[in-house]
Amino acid sequence: MGRSISLTVNGEMVTADVEPRLLLVHFIRERLRLTGTHIGCDTSHCGACIVLLDGVPVKSCAVLAVQADGRQLTSVEALAAGGKLHPIQAAFKQEHGLQCGFCTPGMMMSSFALLADNPDPDEEEIRWALSGNICRCTGYVNIVKAVRAASAQMKLSAAVPIPVGAGS
């Protein structure tokens, strides 16, 4: 009944036996105990479960764990490196881009994918890129500010390390 899968999770190789129907988000949370990835809606609307698969943001409640076989998975836990916050994390704190913190990991992973693709997005581009992430606390104003601040900071320090397993 189980299927063996192997994938890289935040830079480390993981092999596991999983039921074919196991959702990736449950694999991440329950099996790997990486609880920074959250579940908010079950229907891929809220984005609390967003992680990167081969550098691309996916809603892990709408992906099966077996689909991650052979791929590179990056979750919020990998953003900070070497005891240092990633500029996106620092900017979310600095600009008060979070309140209850539940949507925050998903927001930051979406922001990460955006900035990898478009290092200098304007407000409209940020709002569009984050429109698959629901936040009920902030009204998005400070999240937009945080992404802009992170973008500025990342341009300043081009040497910001890319999280392990984030792909190209």
């Binding site: 990486l34 609880t35 920074g36 990835t37 919020v76 953003l79 979310f92 704190k93 913190g101 539940f102």
Partner: peptide
């Protein structure tokens, strides 16, 4: 001042009910 609670949330280290096992 910046929020004291933020460090755990931005690093995926919040502790919500569903995280409890």
């Amino acid at each position: 001042i910046k929020r004291k609670e933020d460090d755990r949330f931005i690093q995926g280290k919040g502790n919500y009910v569903d995280d409890i096992v």
